[in-house]
Simulated assay, not measured.
Amino acid sequence: MAIQNSITLSVDVEDGINIAMRDVFGKEMPPTERVVANTERILDLLEGYNAKATFFTLGQVAEYYPDLIKKIHSKGHEIGVHGYDHHRFDKMAPELARSQLSRAKELLEDLTGEEVAGHRAPAFSINEQTKWALPLLAELGFRYDSSIMPCRAAHYGWPGFPDDVTEIHFSDGNSIYEIPMSTMRLGSRKVPCLGGSYFRLLPYRISQYSIDKISKRNTPVFYMHPYETDPERYPDYYFDELNKVSTVLRLKMKSMWIGRKNFPDKMEKMLRQNETMTMVETS
């Protein structure tokens, strides 16, 4: 099959179990080894197609599993920061954000021996209310950010932000490139389209259609999480907590398993039809 387009491929390296245990059930715990196995599954898949990606990684994952970071780097992929422990910017004061970003950046740079150029906020949580994060990122030495969904979505989004890569200048003389997430028009609305639950839940042809359309104006940005490749049952302690929440929340959490078994096959289709590049190449 002929290669059709180039896409910017990104992986948000986080553990689905420990984040759900904290954010949904209020139970603090370290990341589990599932994040290692799931990320290595993605690395193997990419290697089969000589594809490169940017792995936006939590500092907490780097602390617990430093060999995973070294392995990602040794395969020629870019390493970026995804925060320290997946706290959203709208849940942090600027002082805490500075501390967590600095900690994560230093950890990853120590492990790779290279400067980290890029950042992605957990849950795309940079928007009009948290835009104070952008000059902070520039001050900390990040060359680019890729956190803004330039449309209105259920829990995130910055409607009106440009669709194209944009250099933002600040009063202190610093600047940063913003690489926004890809969107498509659905009637009069712009909607998210490439990656995550959209890739899991929708037929593959819709994702490829989106890639083809977006490629006519700029490079599509695709994102995913390692846990989306993991169809295996979570530990019993997870379900012990899940059974305590409301029926609506329980159904919402269970919906996150839909499409996981087919995710790797869809990824292979995408890699066969499209070349990939890292985020830093886009900026």
Rank of each mutant, 00 (worst) to 15 (best):
E63N: 14
K91S: 11
P94E: 13
F222Y: 15
E78Y: 08
G195C: 11
A53W: 00
G157L: 05
K190F: 04
L58H: 03
F55M: 03
K131F: 06
G16T: 06
P150S: 09
N243C: 07
D163W: 06
G26L: 11
I211A: 04
L136T: 12
P264F: 08
E114H: 14
P231V: 09
E114Y: 13
Y223R: 07
D240N: 15
A93D: 13
N5A: 08
I148W: 01
V11N: 02
T130E: 05
R120N: 06
M92G: 04
P94Y: 10
A138E: 04
W158H: 02
G113I: 07
S99M: 10
I179R: 01
M29G: 06
A37R: 15
D164F: 14
A153E: 13
D15P: 10
R34E: 11
L202S: 12
V191C: 07
V35Y: 07
V248H: 10
F89A: 01
E115L: 10
V13T: 14
K91F: 10
I168W: 03
A53G: 01
P264G: 07
Y65N: 02
E281V: 05
N5K: 14
T282L: 13
Y65S: 09
L271V: 03
K266H: 09
T54H: 03
T112L: 11
V248G: 02
D44T: 08
M1D: 03
Q60K: 12
R22Q: 13
F55K: 00
F199S: 07
W257A: 06
M267S: 00
L96R: 15
T183Y: 01
D163M: 09
M149L: 15
K244C: 09
S197C: 07
P203W: 11
V191N: 05
V81D: 07
N50P: 00
